[in-house]
Computed example of a mutant assay.
Amino acid sequence: MNSLIERLITTHRMLNHEIRRELQRRIPDSLRLADLKKRRLAVKDQLFRHMPQAGDFRAAARQVVARFRTQRPITAL
C-alpha cells in the first residue's frame, strides 16, 4: 500500500479521535469542531482521489489499523 494513503488514513483516524474528544467536553468549542471537520473532509477527499472505490478505502483502512495496533501499544489518554 502507498505510504501517502497510509498517512492519510492515519490522519483521518486522528481527526476522528479529536472530534470525539471535543464533543465529550462539557462545553465543546464549535469553532474547533468546525475546523477539525473541515480538515477531516479534506483528508477524505484526498483519499478518494487516490482510491475512488469505497471498498478499496475500507480494506486499506483495515490494513493500516491492523498494522498500527501491532506496532504501537494503545495507551489511555
Rank of each mutant, 00 (worst) to 15 (best):
M1K: 11
M1F: 15
M1H: 11
N2V: 00
N2H: 11
L4G: 02
L4I: 07
L4T: 14
I5C: 03
E6Q: 12
E6T: 04
E6V: 02
R7W: 02
R7C: 03
R7F: 06
R7S: 06
L8P: 04
L8M: 03
L8E: 06
I9V: 13
T10F: 07
T10W: 07
T11P: 08
H12V: 01
H12K: 14
M14H: 03
M14C: 01
M14F: 02
L15Y: 06
L15R: 04
L15M: 02
N16E: 15
N16T: 04
N16Y: 03
N16P: 01
H17K: 09
H17W: 12
E18K: 13
I19R: 00
R20G: 10
R21C: 13
R21V: 04
E22N: 08
E22G: 09
E22V: 06
Q24T: 06
R26H: 11
R26D: 15
R26E: 15
I27L: 13
I27N: 15
I27D: 15
I27V: 15
P28Y: 00
P28S: 02
P28E: 00
D29K: 08
S30I: 03
S30N: 05
S30Q: 11
L31E: 05
R32A: 09
L33A: 08
A34D: 15
D35N: 10
D35A: 10
L36Q: 08
L36P: 09
K37T: 03
K37E: 12
K37D: 04
K38E: 10
K38H: 14
R39K: 12
R40G: 01
R40V: 00
L41V: 03
L41I: 08
A42R: 01
V43T: 03
K44D: 03
K44V: 00
K44I: 00
D45N: 12
Q46C: 05
Q46I: 02
L47S: 06
L47N: 06
R49G: 10
R49V: 10
R49A: 07
H50E: 10
H50F: 08
M51E: 05
P52I: 01
Q53Y: 09
Q53D: 13
A54Q: 15
G55V: 04
D56Q: 09
D56K: 03
D56W: 04
F57H: 06
R58Q: 13
R58D: 14
A59F: 09
A60E: 15
A60L: 01
R62C: 04
R62M: 06
V64P: 12
V64I: 08
V65Y: 10
V65C: 07
V65Q: 13
A66N: 15
R67L: 07
R67E: 10
F68A: 09
R69H: 13
T70Q: 14
P73S: 09
P73M: 10
I74Y: 13
I74Q: 14
I74G: 12
T75N: 08
L77F: 13
